[in-house]
Design a binder for these strands. Sequence first.
DNA 1: TGTTAGCACTCTAAGGCATTGAGTGCTAAA
DNA 2: TTTAGCACTCAATGCCTTAGAGTGCTAACA
Lengths: 347, 347
Amino acid sequence: MNMNERKKKILAAIIQDYIQTAEPVGSRTISRKYNLGVSPATIRNEMADLEDLGLIEQPHTSAGRIPSDLGYRYYVDYLMEPEQLTPSQEELILRSYENKSQEIGKILVKTGQLMSQLTNYTSIVMAPRRGKPSKIKHIQLISMAPTQAMLIVVLDNGSVHHQVIDVGESISQADLEQVSKVLNAKLAGLDMQKIRLTILNEIYFELARYKIFMDAALGLLEDSQGSGNEDKIYLGGVYNMLNQPEFHNIEKVKTLLSLLEQEDVLQQILINFQGEGLTVKIGVENNCEEIKDCTMITATYKLDDEVLGSIGVLGPTRMEYAKVIAIVDHMAKVLNQVMNRLTRIPR
Amino acid sequence: MNMNERKKKILAAIIQDYIQTAEPVGSRTISRKYNLGVSPATIRNEMADLEDLGLIEQPHTSAGRIPSDLGYRYYVDYLMEPEQLTPSQEELILRSYENKSQEIGKILVKTGQLMSQLTNYTSIVMAPRRGKPSKIKHIQLISMAPTQAMLIVVLDNGSVHHQVIDVGESISQADLEQVSKVLNAKLAGLDMQKIRLTILNEIYFELARYKIFMDAALGLLEDSQGSGNEDKIYLGGVYNMLNQPEFHNIEKVKTLLSLLEQEDVLQQILINFQGEGLTVKIGVENNCEEIKDCTMITATYKLDDEVLGSIGVLGPTRMEYAKVIAIVDHMAKVLNQVMNRLTRIPR
DNA sequence: TGTTAGCACTCTAAGGCATTGAGTGCTAAA
DNA sequence: TTTAGCACTCAATGCCTTAGAGTGCTAACA
């Protein structure tokens, strides 16, 4: 790509101006506002070249230029000056996590809120996903009422599932302890597949008395595999988008919102970008018709070296790239710390 | 209110037509489409009366009439013919709850989805709220890894809270059993306030060794009081609203969405309507500027006789009242059954 | 007395048309 | 290579006209 210094400056000027004003940028504007020391005519010539290169476009003949997806890409890769968070932003973030409950869900919600608040775009936060099927670590029965027992199943990934069971007959805590022991002996260390496929019949036979507990435990396991907190997507600041001039068109809002309501699709998009650390997907790079006018900036968060999930910000391609990149990057780092501070979940 | 039969028929016709078309209804339309056996001129005279009564309004001189909030109110209270769900709708609902996990969150999400799908409006589902502070039913420690223990706290309301604790030193399952016993003996049956205010110092002194577990348990309790699943609001079909012509105006969408993002405000609105069974709040009756053009239809769901929360549908005042009322009412009943089918949580 | 036909009147929506102004590309001169 | 000048393009704006829907009023009618 044949880009001299002046072209770069002009492209940067166009993009910066357009990001600010959301209006097509003309040659006069650039020559007036950005001191390039050349006349509008010269800039016009350069702009014609930039258009040939596919970096900028003209909405119609008598309008100024707007950056193309490719133009933004070039800007992000080569022209943009990295930004830092302001001290007040950093402080806001720090304060937000103080006194925060240990609950993962709340932390993720807060993270999303912060991102949308700081960027004025929409934030997307993906709940942690776990890889392999989990094994039963421990089963415990607790008497809740004469005929009712609370079944608790602890998995080795650190998740806990529970359900109250009505046993029909009165049953003592001591009895329940006994049942717990038996169930533990038989089931601990197994994942659901194993239980289902190989040992089920045997145990059922042996533990016929405890069928009701077995069934409940298996039901819980099944639920937990399917997804509990997992696969959840937290959105924040959706309505920030409506303040963007590009979404003054109802149709666009509709397609965007309909996408955002489909958690599974979002999940898939995020997962596709995952594993590359911080990613910036501009317009069509998202490979998704519904957000072909949007840029998504995502980063992953981890525990130790395992990637747990992604967080990201979705906004129009006309986005304050430097600022948002700084924020998403920072938030991912903070989230890493917070996840580590939550007492470790052993695997 | 001086309403003869013909006025009632005309009002009903205006409202039904307007609900269908979203266009102001003129006298000619009514005389043509609804067989009242009178000429447009007569209808005009009656319409003038209805306008004096405040039941209908004119957007401008040369337009037809549209119902006012008061008009809808009269319609709902006196004119509307109750509807039933269609068999296919009922079946859809039934099928949706089959094979549904026992998890309350998922059931509520599904309920919201169903309501928005069936009505084409936005659904709002409030998670169950509990009344009195909960007491500790059982505390259990489980060894997860050499230096890590899972703390599980079961409350008497049937909720379970858990956290992994890093103990620093290696600790055996037997030790943990021992600690569990002690903690249970001291803490079971108490709610957090009691623990905090009266016994804390004593126990701390006595159980200095177990401080780390105590702290974690208290932390969990605190979290759970604050709200876990509670106070959560599930929204569904928000973007359905964008298909309504009244929301082709971006400003209205903005105010609506900004309201829907404030869970606490929604919560408050729902709680205010609660306890009256099925409620229909039309336009300004909502006492809320942001949704003064919307109607909210809510119903409560219960366990035994205790009201747990509300579900509802939010749409434009130009709403298919009979249909939506039937659906919300039905869904509340179904939800009651489902909640009861989930094994009872003793109090 | 209630109903209706007729008619003048009002007001929005839509279309046509000229004007404005921002911005371009091209050409020729510096 | 840069720039001034200029003709050209095209969306946006404002103004005007027209069409059409609907009303309220009046007077005639049953």
